[in-house]
Simulated assay, not measured.
Amino acid sequence: MTQGQLMPDLSPLPLPPSYRCRPATAADAEAVHQLVAACERELLGRADTGLDSIAADLTLPGLDPALDTLLVHDAAGMLAGRAWMNPGQRAEVDVHPDHRDRGLGSALLDWVEARAVGSGRERMSQTVQDNDRGAAALLRSRGYGPLVTQWLLEIALPVEPVVPPPPAGITVRPFRPGDERAAHQLTEDAFDEWQKRRKSYEEWARHTIERPTFAPAISPVAFAGEAMVGAVLSLDVPSLGEGYVERVAVRRDHRNRGIARLLLRESFRAFHRQGQRTCTLWTHSETGALSLYERVGMTVRRSSTVYSRALRVPG
C-alpha cells in the first residue's frame, strides 16, 4: 500500500459509510495542520498552532503512528478528522467544521479511549477551548470532568520594555549551542512539581530547541557561576504576528529573586526590537505562576480546560 492510500474502515469504528480511516505518517503534517487551523479559525478567529508543532507531534519519541494516530477522510479524500494518543495520558481529537454533527467526534473519542485502554493507560485527558461547548458537552457526557484550567496570556509591547539589572551573582545571556542539556534538566526539574511524567531529552527537544521556529537570540538564560538557574525559551513564528514564549523555568533554590521577571522582560525587549508588539505564553492552574505573569503586565486572552477521566483497564 502506497503512502497516503486509504485503508478500509478500522472495525469496529462506527464511521458513516462515506468515510475511511488510516494511521497518520510524518507526510501528513501539512494536511493535519490545515485541519487544526480550520478548527482554530472557527473557534478563535485565527489559526494559532504552527506547522512545526504538528510535525513535532508526529515524530515524538514514544509515539507509534501506526497504533497511536488515526485520520478520517471523506469520499473525496479530504481530511475530515484526526485523533491520536500522545505519550502519557493526553489525547487529541479534531473534526473539521464542515464535517461536524455526523458522529465523527464520538467515533474518534471511542477510538482514543480503546487505544488508551489497550496500551494500559489508567486515565485519559483532552484539552478543550472553553468556547467549544460541543466538545465540552461530549466529554462530560462520557464521564470526563475538569482537571486543569489553562490560560493564554498576552502582553502589549507598544514601547521597548525596561529590563532591570540581574540580582547579585547572576549573569544573563542569550541561549547558545551547548546549553541544550542544561536547559532540559532545568525545565524538567522545575516542571516536576506538577507534570505527570518527566520528558526524555529527545521528546523535550522535539517541542523546543529542535523546532525550526526556536529563537535562541530571544531566549535568555540565567547563570549562577557555571550553573544554569533560569531560562525563557521563545519561538519566532512569523505567521502569528506576535512573540511566543514556550518555556519559563527557574531553579527552586533561586526563586523569589526576580529572575523569571528579568528573563521575561529580556525576551519581551528582544521581540519588541525585531518589530513584535505583542507577546503570548500559556500557563495553567497547577503551576501557580499566573500571578507572576500578571505582575509583569500580562493579561488573560482566553482559556481552555483539560478534561480527564479514569479508564477501565482489563485485568
Rank of each mutant, 00 (worst) to 15 (best):
L6C: 09
L15D: 08
L15K: 13
S18F: 03
R22L: 08
D28K: 10
D28L: 12
D28H: 03
A29M: 10
V32G: 12
L35R: 06
L35F: 01
V36K: 06
V36Y: 07
R41T: 13
R41N: 09
T49G: 05
T49F: 02
L51N: 05
D57P: 06
T59R: 11
P61T: 06
D64G: 01
D64K: 07
D68R: 11
L70V: 10
W84A: 13
Q89Y: 15
R90C: 14
V93T: 13
D94H: 14
D101W: 14
D101G: 12
R102S: 05
L109V: 02
L109M: 13
S125K: 09
D132T: 07
D132K: 10
G134L: 01
Y144V: 14
P146W: 01
T149D: 04
T149W: 04
T149V: 15
W151N: 01
P158I: 09
E160H: 01
P161M: 01
P164N: 06
P164M: 01
P167S: 04
I170D: 06
T171N: 06
P174C: 02
R181Q: 07
F191L: 08
D192A: 15
Q195I: 15
R197G: 13
K199T: 12
R206C: 12
E210Y: 15
E210N: 15
P212F: 08
P216S: 02
V221I: 00
A222W: 05
E226H: 00
S239G: 00
L240V: 02
A249Y: 05
V250H: 00
G258R: 12
L264Q: 08
F268A: 09
R273P: 00
Q274S: 06
Q276E: 06
R277K: 00
T278K: 04
T280Q: 12
L281A: 00
G288L: 08
A289G: 11
E294C: 11
R295C: 12
G297C: 00
M298Q: 03
S303Y: 03
V306F: 00
S308Y: 03
L311M: 03
